[in-house]
């Protein structure tokens, strides 16, 4: 088409648009506009849904400030979730420990003072923990401290009004009269000071000990009732020149992971 033809066409198009605008202001195009709206609205609803979903998924990438805020919120939420999980795990652990202690209490009728570990001291040879109950509630030096369903972990070594120190069985100053659950019911003394393991000394040489046998308290000393689990025999040392044999024990409780314990109060 020539240049003149093109100009003529655009003049006609302009005239058509003017007519359209005029008709619109008279309201004569409402029917056509409604028809077009109805015709396309379904497609646009679909595309709008797609856009909305896309924005939900990726919209934060378009706005740096929003992205950083969202990131900070995510980090804060993640930390909060972690914190709650830790609290939840601790409560579950504490709950299980308390349930076992209640079971022990029901079985033995021994009075218990539940306590929580509030401090640890594993430096050097001194292996003790601080608990949140003291002499005001009846905690006294020499009392047995158990965990779970009657597992001996140590004895009270020092008390304050509201706190006390528990000397663990792995401490080198701790000595507990014990019995091996073998056919001879061998007696001996469990001593600490050998790292994470403990030893049972003064076992008569003529008595037979098997690896894996359970060692419990013998009840031959005050404040320590009979039948508290101490550990299992992991190794036996029976030298010909020694008057007694020794047994290396693996403690029944993990002494480094204590949280809820109970002090036994014997009448």
């Amino acid at each position: 088409m020539t240049r003149r033809g093109s100009i003529r066409l655009f003049v006609i198009l302009s005239a058509v648009f003017v007519v359209l605008i005029f008709l619109n202001y008279l309201g004569r195009l409402d029917f056509a506009k409604n028809f077009v709206s109805r015709l396309f609205s379904d497609e646009f609803v679909v595309s709008n849904d797609i856009g909305t979903n896309l924005y939900r998924e990726t919209g934060f990438l378009m706005d740096k400030k929003y992205f950083l805020e969202a990131y900070d919120k995510c980090v804060a939420k993640s930390q909060e979730v972690d914190s709650l999980k830790i609290k939840s795990d601790l409560l579950v652990e504490e709950n299980e420990g308390l349930k076992k202690l209640i079971g022990f209490r029901a079985r033995t009728k021994i009075q218990l003072i539940p306590a929580k570990i509030i401090g640890r001291n594993f430096d050097g040879m001194d292996k003790s923990v601080m608990i949140d109950q003291g002499s005001l509630v009846g905690v006294a030096v020499g009392q047995s401290v158990i965990v779970g369903d009657g597992i001996l972990v140590g004895k009270i070594s020092k008390t304050e009004d509201e706190t006390a120190f528990v000397r663990l069985i792995s401490d080198n100053q701790n000595k507990v009269a014990a019995t091996i659950l073998n056919k001879d019911r061998s007696l001996g003394v469990v001593e600490g000071g050998y790292g994470i393991s403990v030893r049972m000394n003064f076992i008569p040489r003529n008595e037979t000990i098997m690896i894996g046998e359970l060692v419990i308290t013998s009840g031959l000393e005050p404040n320590v009732p009979k039948g508290l689990a101490i550990g299992t025999v992991a190794a036996i040392e029976n030298e010909a020149y020694q008057p007694f044999q020794q047994a290396v024990l693996t403690p029944s409780a993990d002494l480094s992971k204590l949280s809820t314990i109970a002090v036994l109060v014997l009448n």
């Binding site: 015709l39 497609e43 646009f44 679909v46 595309s47 856009g51 896309l54 919209g59 378009m62």
Partner: peptide, 17 residues
């Protein structure tokens, strides 16, 4: 109509950019 639908759909989908 197809061109218009495509144009408007693109605007709808990428409205946040």
């Amino acid at each position: 109509a197809a061109i218009f639908i495509a144009h408007y759909s693109l605007l709808n989908i990428f409205f946040f950019t």
